Simulated assay, not measured.
Amino acid sequence: MSTATELRLTQQWLALEHEAIWVLALVGARFPALEEAAQDALPAHETTRDRLADAVTDLGGTPVATQPSYDVTDPRDASAARALVRDVEARIAAACVRLVGPTSDRARDRAVRGLRAAALAQVRWGADPEPFPGLD
């Protein structure tokens, strides 16, 4: 994989981490029953975001910035809020799978850890376990 491709895919994952942080803040603020779970999930996403921003810089890029808001379905209840979090976690898993291919060992290790974290998060938020997460 070329450095340019690795940079592009890392930027995509970084953008999803920004979105996950935004979604978790939304879910935690709007649904008291989910506040603790959302707060517990935030630090891992913030750490991943920071590490991905460093990786983008190391690859010669400028890290993609967070957006003021994201085009997500407004969750009307806790079930819809859980589905919203599962969706962003599924998209993170898919982004990680794209990075697992022929890339640097460091990027591959990071992507495998990210895939595992996203798959486990999907289950924590109510998804059924998948044999091969991120391969939809």
Rank of each mutant, 00 (worst) to 15 (best):
R30L: 08
R49M: 02
T103V: 15
Y70V: 04
R30E: 15
V56Q: 12
A94D: 00
T57C: 05
T73P: 02
P32N: 09
P43W: 01
A20L: 06
V27F: 01
F132C: 04
D74F: 04
D109Y: 12
Q122W: 08
V72Y: 11
V72W: 04
V27D: 00
L115C: 08
C96A: 13
D109V: 04
A81Q: 09
P68Q: 12
L26G: 08
R108N: 12
S79R: 10
W22A: 15
Y70D: 11
D74E: 15
T3R: 14
T62D: 12
T66S: 14
T3P: 04
A33P: 07
A117V: 01
R91D: 02
Q122G: 15
A44I: 06
A80W: 11
P68A: 07
D105P: 12
V56W: 09
A44R: 14
T66E: 13
A127C: 03
T57G: 14
L115V: 14
P43D: 01
P131N: 03
G134L: 06
W22T: 01
D50P: 01
Q67W: 07
P131I: 10
L34V: 06
E89F: 06
P32C: 10
E35I: 02
L99S: 10
P102C: 13
R98V: 09
G126Y: 09
V100C: 13
R30Q: 15
L26C: 14
T3M: 15
R110D: 05
V64I: 03
D109Q: 14
W125K: 03
T3V: 13
A15C: 00
T10P: 13
V85A: 05
L34I: 00
G114P: 04
A65L: 04
